[in-house]
Computed example of a mutant assay.
Amino acid sequence: MTSTGHQVTPFRQVLLKIHSRCNLSCDHCYMYQHADQSWRHRPMVMSKRIIDQTAARIGEHANDHQLRSVTVILHGGEPLLAGAHTIDYTARAIRRAVPSGTRVMYGLQTNGLLLDDRFLDLFAQHDITVGVSLDGPSEANDRHRRYADGRGSHVGVVPALELLQSPRYRQIYGGILCTVDLENDPVEVYQHLLEFRPPEIDLLLPHGNWTKPPAGRPDDQTLTPYAEWLIAVFDRWYGAPQRATRIRLFESIMSLLLGGRSGTEAVGLGKVDLVTIETDGSIEQGDALKTTAQGMAATGLHVVHDSFDQALAHPAIQARQIGAEGLSEVCQRCPIVKICGGGLYAHRYRVDNGFLNPSVYSADLFRLIHYIAGRMAADLDMKVGRL
């Protein structure tokens, strides 16, 4: 139980920052281009000592809470910079530490530039699912995802995606992560991503908040440019005779509208069950909070000294496990609060009152959810009419 009397939800997702640097210099990166610059003072690579201690904490938590499964996400920076040996060591250490009754599922998010057969063979050996970041065709992607010298990354990512969709590696292909950019044509972006046959596409709203609003998000809350961008993709995806891929945001909204669960923190009132471990062993909240203020993701805890249960007792983490009670009054009064859930936590931030605000994308989420609900209702009516 939390100090507020609510039942705690154990951590079922552990995000490991196995490398704290990157080989790209994307201008929209939440790690390097926003308020929190703690990466500058952390080791580049997670040491074997910290890996072993983290593995022990994961095993301890899984045992104490009798978890049937735990998901470990290898992350960065760019995780492939840690090298194949570090990734192999990490996967083996965690599997050794976790009880035999707990299934360990691995994921890895990469920009794809270093991805080759050597890495992919290792990932196939450990059943590590691979997600690649790509924002669309070269002009769209390379506006933000660039090297420090200004060169675009698209040309280097394409070979990695071609490898992943090959029969040899298809089983570990997790999908494509794409950050929405209003300057890009939404349908053109979607159609380009489909060329790489992703099993899933994750469309992310760019990180921003009330103190530092995202690009193109107007003060006028009657305007919904991000919703209109997403709706254009939704119409193409939903209206297709056979959907070519899953889109996590859309499927989560549809599931919530039907009384189910969300598969993303971006919508819904599900309890946050993710914890982040930095390269130095610091236990932190979700790293999107680095876009709000220096130290906002920190808990003051460390895997050498502190358990995951101690992290669960941290007030900031408890605040994200109490559902609608943790939202602003505006959100609590909203008729679609169970669907929207206040939006992504980091997007609610304002310097004068913290996170007790609707999402900076509140108007866009309201419009998008109502649109999807309308399409689903019309579709259901048509199907019922044919019975």
Rank of each mutant, 00 (worst) to 15 (best):
A55F: 04
A55D: 11
A56L: 11
A56E: 10
A56G: 01
A56S: 09
R57Q: 08
R57A: 00
R57Y: 06
R57C: 02
I58Y: 15
I58K: 12
I58P: 15
G59N: 05
G59D: 09
G59S: 05
G59W: 10
E60L: 07
E60C: 03
E60F: 10
E60W: 13
H61R: 10
H61V: 02
H61G: 05
A62H: 03
A62K: 02
A62E: 00
N63G: 08
N63I: 08
N63L: 15
N63Q: 15
N63T: 12
D64R: 14
D64A: 09
D64G: 06
D64Y: 12
D64K: 15
D64Q: 14
H65G: 00
H65A: 00
Q66A: 14
Q66R: 15
Q66S: 14
Q66W: 13
L67D: 09
L67H: 13
R68N: 13
R68C: 09
R68M: 10
R68K: 14
R68W: 12
R68L: 08
R68E: 14
R68H: 11
S69L: 05
S69C: 08
S69Y: 07
S69R: 12
V70G: 10
V70R: 14
V70P: 14
V70N: 14
V70A: 07
T71W: 03
T71H: 11
T71D: 13
V72I: 12
V72D: 07
V72E: 06
V72T: 05
V72Q: 07
I73Y: 06
I73V: 12
I73N: 11
I73E: 05
I73K: 10
I73H: 13
L74K: 13
L74A: 06
L74E: 05
L74G: 04
L74P: 10
L74R: 09
H75M: 01
H75K: 03
H75W: 08
H75A: 00
H75N: 03
G76E: 04
G77E: 01
G77C: 07
G77D: 08
G77A: 04
E78H: 02
E78D: 06
E78F: 00
E78W: 01
E78C: 01
P79T: 05
P79W: 12
P79Q: 08
P79A: 06
P79G: 04
L80I: 02
L80A: 04
L80G: 01
L80Q: 05
L80D: 05
L80F: 04
L80K: 08
L81A: 05
L81H: 09
L81R: 11
L81F: 01
L81Y: 06
L81W: 03
A82V: 01
A82S: 08
A82H: 11
A82I: 04
A82M: 08
G83I: 00
G83M: 02
G83W: 01
G83F: 03
A84P: 03
A84R: 15
H85K: 15
H85T: 13
H85P: 01
H85G: 04
T86M: 03
T86V: 04
T86H: 05
T86K: 00
T86I: 04
